[in-house]
C-alpha cells in the first residue's frame, strides 16, 4: 500500500515552553486508510494534526506527505492535499449562503467559475446539503453546519481529510449524519484522520492510534484497543457498553470471556449461556 503520511522521530514544543508536547512520534498512514486519533485532553492530538498540515513546525524529526518532506518550500503544495474540519461549527463560516461558503476556498485558488460551480455542486451533493445551497449558514443545525464545512473541504479535492473533534459539539442525530458522511468519504478513497472521543466513531476506523502525554501508546485495530476496557477512560475514550456490562457481570460473580466483544458478540454469548443452563 502506498504511504501517504510518514512521521519520523517527531518532537515538538512551543519555543516559550520547556516541556515537550510530542515526543518521539513515529507513525505511517497509508493512502485510503481511516485512522482514529484518540487521547485525553492535552495529550497532543490537535498538535499532531496541526503539524501534519504544516500549521506548526516540528522541533525535531520529519514529516513526509505523499512522499514529499514538509518544509517551508513545500508547505503550500502539501496543504492543498489536506483539508481540515474543526470542532466548533460556528467558527468556520465566511459566506453569506451555503453555496458561497463552499466556493470560498476555490475562489482563493482562482478556479474558473464554470468549474467552480461543478465542484461546489458535487461537494454539496456528497454531504446531502445541495438543497440547502441558498440557506444562510447561521440558521442551520450543528450537524448541517459541519456537513457544509466538510463540503468546503471536499470541493478543494484534498487527498487527506483531518477531522479535529468535528462531531463533539453535535446532537446525536447531527453526529450520526456526519459520521455517515465520513464513512462514505472513506469508501470513496479519501485518507481520513479523525480525532475523537466518540467510541462509535472510533470503532469505524481501520486503526486507532492512542496518544498519551505526547507519545504513541498504542496503534492497533479498534478491537485490540477497546480490549483495554475501563482503562480507556484514562486515554480519553468512553468505555464500550459491552465492556461496562462485562465488568458489572463479573462483579456479580459471573465468568465472562476475557477478550473484547462487540455488543452483538456479547448478545450471542449471553444467548449461548442461557441455552446451556
Amino acid at each position: 500500500m502506498e504511504k501517504i503520511i510518514e512521521i519520523a522521530d517527531l518532537t515538538f514544543h512551543y519555543p516559550q515552553q520547556d516541556s515537550e508536547l510530542l515526543r518521539q512520534v513515529n507513525l505511517t498512514i497509508h493512502k485510503g486508510e481511516w485512522v482514529a486519533l484518540i487521547g485525553h485532553n492535552g495529550s497532543g492530538k490537535s498538535t499532531l494534526a496541526r503539524l501534519i498540515d504544516g500549521l506548526l513546525v516540528p522541533t525535531t524529526g520529519t514529516l513526509k506527505i505523499g512522499g514529499t518532506i514538509l518544509s517551508d518550500a513545500s508547505v503550500w503544495q502539501i496543504r492543498k492535499k489536506i483539508g481540515m474540519v474543526f470542532q466548533n461549527p460556528d467558527n468556520q463560516f465566511v459566506g453569506a449562503n451555503v453555496e458561497e461558503d463552499v466556493a470560498f476556498g476555490l475562489e482563493n485558488l482562482a478556479i474558473p467559475r464554470a468549474q467552480m460551480q461543478v465542484r461546489v455542486k458535487e461537494a454539496l451533493q456528497r454531504v446531502n446539503m445541495w438543497e440547502f445551497r441558498e440557506h444562510e449558514p447561521a440558521r442551520l443545525s450543528g450537524g448541517q453546519k459541519q456537513r457544509v464545512a466538510l463540503a468546503g473541504v471536499i470541493a478543494m479535492r484534498p487527498e487527506i481529510i483531518i477531522l479535529d473533534e468535528a462531531t463533539s459539539m453535535l446532537d446525536p442525530e447531527g453526529r450520526k449524519d456526519v459520521i455517515k458522511i465520513i464513512q462514505e468519504l472513506s469508501q470513496a478513497g479519501f485518507t481520513i484522520i479523525s480525532i475523537t472521543h466518540d467510541i462509535n466513531e472510533a470503532s469505524l476506523a481501520q486503526r486507532v492510534v492512542v496518544l498519551n502525554d505526547g507519545q504513541i501508546l498504542q496503534a492497533a485495530t479498534p478491537q485490540t484497543v477497546f480490549a483495554r476496557g475501563e482503562k480507556l477512560l484514562a486515554v480519553g475514550l468512553d468505555v464500550p457498553f459491552s465492556e461496562k456490562l462485562k465488568v458489572a457481570l463479573s462483579r456479580q460473580g459471573l465468568h465472562v470471556p476475557a477478550g473484547y466483544l462487540t455488543e452483538e458478540g456479547m448478545i450471542d454469548w449471553l444467548c449461548q449461556s442461557i441455552s446451556k443452563t
Binding site: L245, V247, A248, R251, Q252, L254, C271, I274
Partner: peptide, 24 residues
C-alpha cells in the same frame, strides 16, 4: 433474540447485570 425476559427494563449496566445473573 433470546430466552431472556425483562420484567422491568433496566436503565443502567448494574440493573441489567442483576437481572441477567438472576435469570442465568
Amino acid at each position: 433474540k433470546s430466552g431472556f425476559e425483562f420484567s422491568k427494563m433496566p436503565l443502567t449496566e448494574e440493573e441489567l447485570a442483576n437481572q441477567l445473573v438472576q435469570q442465568l
